[in-house]
Each structure stands twice: as structure tokens, then as C-alpha cells.
């Protein structure tokens, strides 16, 4: 009997811990000290974040890339995810969201209804976004055209279909801390913010473990392409012997040092990076030269 009571208590305790860990964190960031949303600055956050690359319609023409109707499919080992409509449409999109709800979605990966988002949405990187960038981005996205396309449900099998389990995933793999630490020059620090937070380069260029968390021991050392074809390259200095000038030229024009051009998803990334101030592209290059070389 005593054994039985102990067992019940242990199960209850485990349940409580699970419940605690998996409860979505809906605390908005501290906006104290931020100034009113600046649409122009927000446009740059939007470009650096690469929002349109995933959230525009899959067949969008160049003119329609700011219509964030969603629908782009992302196959993965866990199922297929579909980018939702994040246009300012009040019904189909996020037009009714408050700034707090937007911030929690972006930096905590939690919907206004209180459900965890799947990490196909790179909130693990956006969690490091500054409050001012969130405010500016929110202001900018309000100015974009609306789309009435309804968001499509993800096609994810059990047990990943239970969103509560994502709380465990976040507990294991989401951190507000930067990977590269120590004394950094202001330029490398800016590059770190762009790489690790806004542009979320690590999401594709770092391999993942069986649970889909980043294998941080192989930071930016390349990964299999989730589409199943090809490999996303190692961009640490061991494999990539590009000079800083080579990197900057690549981020500006898309030309590699061999004068091949960026292809696939990276071509879209270059389109976005080319919109940033030249100093930001130089900062990205400086960061990539500063990360540890991993063979």
C-alpha cells in the first residue's frame, strides 16, 4: 500500500513537472525605454529576418513578395509544416494582434491563444531580438498588403501533433544566450546579432540532433538539406576559406569567389541581405571570420 502511494505520488510529481515545463511562457518582453515603432527601421529588421522568404505565397512573383499569404511547405523528419498567413488581414492574418501578442509569438514561439509554435518558425533565434526591433518590425508589418488566404494546418504525426510536448523541446533547446561569447568588437557583436538572432543563419547551417535541436558543438559547420537533396555548406573558416571581401561581395551580389552565384534558398537570403546597410554585411562577414573553425 505504501509502495502504491509512493508510485502515485511519483507519477503526480512527474506530471506536475511536465505541466510546469510545458506551460507556454506568455510574458511579453519589457518595452520600457523603446521609442515608437519606426517603419523604415522595421523594414530592415524584416529584411534581415527573412520573413518574406518563408511567408510569401509559394508562387509569388517578385512584385508580390510582400504579400505574406503563407502556404510555403517545409518538409522535415517530423512532418510537413506550412507557413501561415502573417499579413495584416484581420481574419486570415495577424491584423488583430496586439504588440504584446506579436512579441510573444516572435520571441517566445507562443500564439495569442497560448499554443506553442513548431520551431520551423525560428523563434529560437528571434528570442534574442531587441525590444526596439520587435516594435519597429510590428509597425512595418502593419503597413504591408493584406491577403485573405487562410493558413493551412501542419501535417505532423503523433506524438509531435501534441503541441504541449514542444514545451519540453523549448526547455531543452531554446536559450536567450548567444553561442559565441567573450569580448567582441562592436562589429563582430553586430554580426553575432544578425547571424544568431535576426537572420537565423544557424537554423540551416548547423546540424540538428535526433530531436531537432541544434547540435551547438558543430556551430555553422553545415547540415543535410531537410529537403533530402544536397547539403547546406559548412561556413566556418575551416571549410570556407573566403576572405572578408569575398563574403561581403557574396552578401551584396550573390557571387562566390569562383563567380558562381548563390542558388536555392540562399539566393533569397542574398536578396534580403542586399537590402541591409553595407556595415551590416561587413558585420556578418566579420562574425563568420571570428567563429571557431570546425572541420
Amino acid at each position: 500500500m505504501r509502495l502504491f502511494t509512493g508510485l502515485v505520488l511519483a507519477v503526480c510529481a512527474a506530471g506536475l513537472v511536465f505541466w510546469g515545463i510545458t506551460t507556454p511562457d506568455r510574458t511579453p518582453p519589457d518595452f520600457a525605454g523603446t521609442s515608437a515603432g519606426d517603419v523604415e527601421a522595421g523594414a530592415l529588421v524584416f529584411a534581415a529576418g527573412g520573413c518574406a522568404s518563408c511567408h510569401k505565397a509559394p508562387d509569388a512573383s517578385a512584385e508580390n513578395k510582400l504579400v505574406l499569404a503563407g502556404g510555403h511547405a517545409f518538409p522535415s523528419d517530423f512532418g510537413t509544416f506550412y507557413a501561415p498567413n502573417i499579413s495584416p488581414d484581420p481574419q486570415a492574418g495577424i491584423g488583430q494582434w496586439t504588440q504584446d501578442e506579436f512579441a510573444v509569438a516572435l520571441t517566445k514561439g507562443v500564439s495569442p491563444e497560448g499554443a506553442h509554435y513548431y520551431p520551423a518558425f525560428p523563434y529560437a533565434a528571434y528570442s534574442k531580438m531587441t525590444a526596439q526591433d520587435v516594435v519597429d518590425l510590428f509597425a512595418y508589418m502593419k503597413t504591408l498588403p493584406t491577403a485573405q488566404t487562410p493558413s493551412r494546418d501542419h501535417d505532423v504525426g503523433f506524438p509531435f501533433s501534441i503541441r504541449r510536448t514542444l514545451g519540453v523541446w523549448k526547455h531543452l533547446f531554446v536559450s536567450d544566450d548567444y553561442h559565441i561569447t567573450g569580448t567582441l568588437s562592436p562589429e563582430v557583436e553586430r554580426g553575432r546579432y544578425l547571424t544568431e538572432a535576426l537572420a537565423h543563419c544557424t537554423e540551416c547551417h548547423t546540424e540538428r540532433n535526433a530531436l531537432g535541436g541544434l547540435n551547438t558543438g558543430r556551430w555553422l559547420a553545415g547540415a543535410p538539406n531537410p529537403s533530402g537533396k544536397g547539403r547546406i555548406p559548412n561556413i566556418t573558416p575551416s571549410d570556407l576559406d573566403w576572405s572578408e571581401a569575398d563574403l561581403i561581395a557574396y552578401f551584396t551580389s550573390g557571387f562566390t569567389p569562383d563567380y558562381d552565384s548563390a542558388g536555392g534558398e540562399m539566393a533569397e537570403v542574398i536578396e534580403n541581405l542586399a537590402l541591409l546597410p553595407a556595415e551590416d554585411r561587413a558585420a556578418l562577414a566579420a562574425y563568420l571570420q571570428a567563429v571557431p573553425a570546425i572541420p
Binding site: 529537403s227 551580389s253 550573390g254 542558388g263 539566393a267 542574398i270
Partner: peptide
């Protein structure tokens, strides 16, 4: 150089496989 790179990228993005 940027316009030239864009023209290469436009074609490679749409018409070159992995």
C-alpha cells in the same frame, strides 16, 4: 556587379537544381 549578380541568381534560383 550587383545587377549582374541578380541576373545570375534569378536564373539559378528558378532553373538550377541542387
Amino acid at each position: 556587379m550587383k545587377a549582374l549578380g541578380d541576373s545570375c541568381g534569378t536564373c539559378h534560383k528558378a532553373y538550377r537544381g541542387p
